[in-house]
Amino acid sequence: MAVEIKDLSYVYNPGSPFETRALDNVTLNVDDGDFFGIIGHTGSGKSTLISHLNALTRVQKKKKLNASAVLRVCGIDLTAKKPDLKSVREKVGMVFQYPEYQLFADTVRQDVAFGPKNLKLGEEEINKRVREALALVGLDYAEVSERSPFDLSGGQKRRVAIAGVIAMRPELLILDEPTAGLDPRGKKEILALLHSIKRTCPTIIMVSHNMDEVAACCNKVAVMSGGKIAGVFPPKELFARRELISSLGLELPTVTELAFELAESGLDIDPSALGEEELTEAIAAQFRNK
């Protein structure tokens, strides 16, 4: 199992008037090979949860808090007093929101090599990984490797930043809102990219507040609200629960919302099980049957 979490809690500003429970007895399992989505809006605890997964946030131990908590990521016990941080960071790759803000080196090659270098790999291996990672994010090594990352377009910068993480060949890749701030074309490109990355990086967790993206990529989706897991579902099952989604202040994928409205008007289609093409096909079928 890639991630095993049981009864994990986290409290910000304990004991002060600003005390907030960011995580409230979270229990969650992510299997090897999952493309796992976590949705919920800002402040639902998503970010706090994922920063636990590579030990940027440590498991809080105070009084009774987390006394029986389990947090095991890629086989490493993160509730231990001194977990092996180095191997956690090696096995868990983390792409933050707006990752292009972490670029710093003179050339794209050097920037992507930063992670592998920190792993103390040999030069040859580093070069190999840089080439491989840039190819995976759809950038031409010959064209970009010696350019300054700051001269690239917004979409390209983001890809370089993602390459910088996958060059470490993580077993588990976590992405926080990987398409935030991009235009529709840029969003599509990044999502397509994730599918090809999935082949080399077996387990992916994607945090998003965009249901359309989650629907397009994930095989399982955890819904978070108020620091709790409201449920884990395959996307189609989740989207069938229109009431749950609206009660959490989230929105259905636009396709599903449209399909629901059509079904309500009397069209014989199953709204939860449809993507854009399937919906078109289902409507067309209604006309053919006549």
Partner: peptide, 16 residues
């Protein structure tokens, strides 16, 4: 906030 974010991102890439 920005500083913390960037430090976290680099830590996640193995920086210490």
């Amino acid at each position: 906030e920005e500083t913390t974010k960037i430090m976290n991102a680099q830590k996640a890439r193995g920086a210490s």
